[in-house]
Simulated assay, not measured.
Amino acid sequence: MTSAATIDAGEILDNLTRAVVVIDTERRIVRMNAAAESLLHISSRQALGERFTHLVPALAVLEEPVEQAFAQAAGYTEREMRLTLGLDRTITVDCAITPLEQTATLLLEFEQLDRHLRISREHRLIAQNQAIRELIRGLAHEIKNPLGGLRGAAQLLESELDDDDQREYTRIIISEADRLRTLVNGLLGPDSRIEHTPTNLHEVLEHVRSLAVVEAPEGVRIERDYDPSIPVIEAASDQLIQALLNLVRNALQAVGDRGRITLQTRTQRRFTIGDRQHRLVARVDVIDNGPGITPAMQDQIFYPMVTGRAEGSGIGLPIAQNLVNQHGGLIECTSEPGHTVFTVWLPLEDA
């Protein structure tokens, strides 16, 4: 039988999905788990020994209940607290405060309510992508067969015609048939999985950036903000390049002749994509300061043929989503006027 002494309390804390912070009577942080690091965007090394309100000023709302918990040795719960953790980051959490009398410390537990909403949204995105792929695969054969017959008939007709003006009509038919076939193939994406190999994510991003710089107007800046700690990942680099290039080209079209696009990478620990929890994921943000996407359009942008631009084909985002899904990842979007972020989540380690 396993003895209690063999159980590592720190390991148990780090495997919890709920954020946990332990503070002493001086209100200094003595322990925090991986989920708390991820929630508060602070490392344990930076946090230990610091007063919790100095490190995270938004937690000042807990000063009074913390005082009461220490004085009365009683627990406390605060529902739906809104914490502003940065210029562009506000979260909603439930907080439970529990005294640990033997060690004269308090246990602060945070359950992020936004996380449940995000997981629900991810389920919808994943199910949406799978349903779209099945629908398109069924329609593809029905579309491709008559297109092939149409193109073949146009080629035969062209060989019988002597008049160049009349041949121009058959060339148009052949060209349009080819365009439609390319469109259908684009919606389907790769027919089979490409072998994944060790890939440097930043090399992929630099390749995408070099292509985008050539296409960008002079008034558009393409900046980067990389986290050098991201390890090499197992991926199909060509697929990632295509997916990220689609996102960057969308951003270029959004900002027009003048604007700023930022390619940003970060890592995040204890992160769930769909039903699967990962110890470590890479986060790639494509950020632009364009006019933004309307709330109504945000729920539909990953559907094929849906676009906010008259000249858009509506297939770039569905293709990008499909390619990232093949890596076990997901693309999400948040947008408001002047700040649109397409976030690519890519697993680095499974839990």
Rank of each mutant, 00 (worst) to 15 (best):
M1S: 11
I7R: 01
I7P: 02
D8T: 10
G10K: 05
G10Q: 09
I12R: 03
N15M: 11
N15Q: 15
T17D: 08
V22A: 04
A34I: 11
E37Y: 12
I42D: 00
I42S: 00
S43N: 08
Q46W: 07
H54Y: 03
L55S: 01
V56D: 03
E67L: 15
A69S: 15
F70N: 02
M81P: 00
R82K: 12
V93K: 01
A96R: 14
A96I: 12
P99K: 01
E101S: 11
E101Q: 09
T103V: 14
T103R: 14
L106W: 04
L107W: 07
L108C: 08
E109D: 08
E111K: 09
L113K: 11
R118W: 03
R118D: 15
H123N: 11
H123F: 13
R124N: 13
Q128P: 05
Q128C: 09
Q130P: 01
A131R: 14
I132E: 10
R137P: 05
G138H: 14
E142M: 13
L150R: 01
Q155A: 10
E158R: 13
S159N: 06
E160L: 15
E160Y: 11
D162C: 00
D164I: 14
Q166F: 13
E168F: 13
I172E: 14
E176T: 08
L183W: 09
P190K: 01
S192E: 14
R193M: 06
I194T: 10
I194A: 08
I194V: 07
H196F: 00
T197M: 15
T199K: 06
V204A: 02
V204W: 01
S210T: 13
A212W: 07
V214R: 14
E215D: 15
A216Q: 06
E218P: 12
E218W: 08
R221K: 10
I222K: 08
Y226V: 10
I230C: 03
I233W: 06
A236P: 04
Q239E: 15
N246G: 05
R249K: 14
N250Y: 04
N250F: 08
A251H: 10
Q253E: 14
I261P: 06
Q264H: 14
R266W: 04
R276F: 08
H278G: 09
R283D: 00
V284T: 12
V286F: 03
V286E: 01
I287D: 05
N289W: 04
N289C: 06
G292P: 07
I293Q: 00
A296V: 11
M297E: 05
Q298L: 12
D299T: 14
F302E: 07
F302W: 10
T307F: 06
G312A: 04
I315V: 15
A320Q: 02
Q321S: 09
Q321E: 07
L330V: 09
E332L: 13
T334M: 11
H339Y: 15
P347S: 00
